[in-house]
């Protein structure tokens, strides 16, 4: 039974241009699904649609978002927000801007527990210390009292991870959480996210443009192009033999330092026009 299911999810710009074209996908509890695509493929848009934080210029125009079997879009707004707030959390891309620079770290973790789940401040603080310990931060009490600028990028991302897991959400959406980090820090953070996800048995939707990262974090993946699902499969099958020509091209363009003579192949124009045609045909079929 999948925890998150989207069916024919369609998001358009206010002027009608499609950003997501009938995206259907599912994430099971305890599963990590990667969303892969180039910039503009709409991979972040899916997470935003689920969280109900689409940008002003975009509008959800069709489809269903089922969370634990319940269609979010049929709920009244207040209930929907309450449900999302209790069950879904976000690990954002940029640890620099995701924390308020003028507030101490501690309250930024506990706010959510106190405001949304109605915990007592003291309970929430104990829980935050526990979580910071869980994400391998030394002397968590001191970190709770620090301001974000006093901490390194890796530390801040750990705090955001702790904060995401604080309310024991059933689903976490991670939007390129390691793109802003050094490779050595990225490795630690990816391992940490995986460790936390397994321990808490959370469903994780992991947005990334890096196929290397996909192979390290997820069990299954969905490849997107121009807001349309191009391929959906499990990770082993994908890396052994991607089915779609575009997926193959994307994999061939990804650098692999262990293969010194392998040349980097940009996605050929012929494949771009092939997949563009596929998208156009899909649109035409919808119109009919």
């Amino acid at each position: 039974m999948s925890y998150l299911t989207t069916k024919d999810l369609t998001v358009r710009l206010r002027n009608g241009a499609p950003l997501l074209r009938k995206v259907s996908l599912a994430v099971k509890s305890g599963e990590v699904r990667a969303l892969v695509g180039e910039s503009g493929a709409g991979k972040s848009m899916i997470g935003k649609a689920v969280l109900g934080i689409l940008p002003r210029a975009a509008k959800l125009t069709g489809g269903e978002i089922l969370l634990d079997g319940e269609d979010l879009l049929t709920l009244p707004p207040k209930q929907r927000r309450a449900k999302i707030g209790a069950k879904v959390a976000l690990i954002p891309q940029d640890p620099l801007t995701a924390l308020n620079p003028s507030r101490r770290v501690g309250p930024q973790i506990t706010d959510r527990l106190v405001d949304i789940l109605g915990w007592k401040r003291k309970e929430a603080e104990d829980r935050a210390v526990e979580l910071l310990d869980e994400v391998h931060i030394q002397s968590p009490e001191r970190v709770m009292r620090s301001y974000p600028h006093e901490l390194s990028g890796g530390m801040r991302q750990r705090i955001l991870i702790a904060s995401a897991f604080a309310a024991e959400p059933k689903l976490i959406i991670a939007d390129e959480p390691t793109t802003a980090l050094d490779v050595t820090v990225q490795k630690q953070i990816l391992k940490l996210i995986r460790e936390m996800q397994e321990r808490h048995d959370t469903a994780l939707l992991f947005v990334t443009h890096d196929l290397g990262v996909v192979s390290k974090i997820s069990q299954s993946l969905t490849v997107l192009y121009a807001g349309k699902v191009i391929e959906e499969t499990d990770v082993r099958t994908f890396f052994a033999a991607p089915k779609h020509a575009y997926s193959r091209a994307l994999l061939a363009a990804t650098p692999k330092y262990t293969d010194p003579d392998g040349s980097l192949m940009p996605v050929p124009d012929s494949i771009i026009s092939e997949v563009e045609q596929e998208v156009a045909a899909f649109d035409a079929q919808l119109k009919r």
Partner: peptide
């Protein structure tokens, strides 16, 4: 890749 932002008219 098509960029949908270009389609927003002022």
């Amino acid at each position: 890749m098509r960029d949908a932002r270009g389609q927003v008219r002022r």
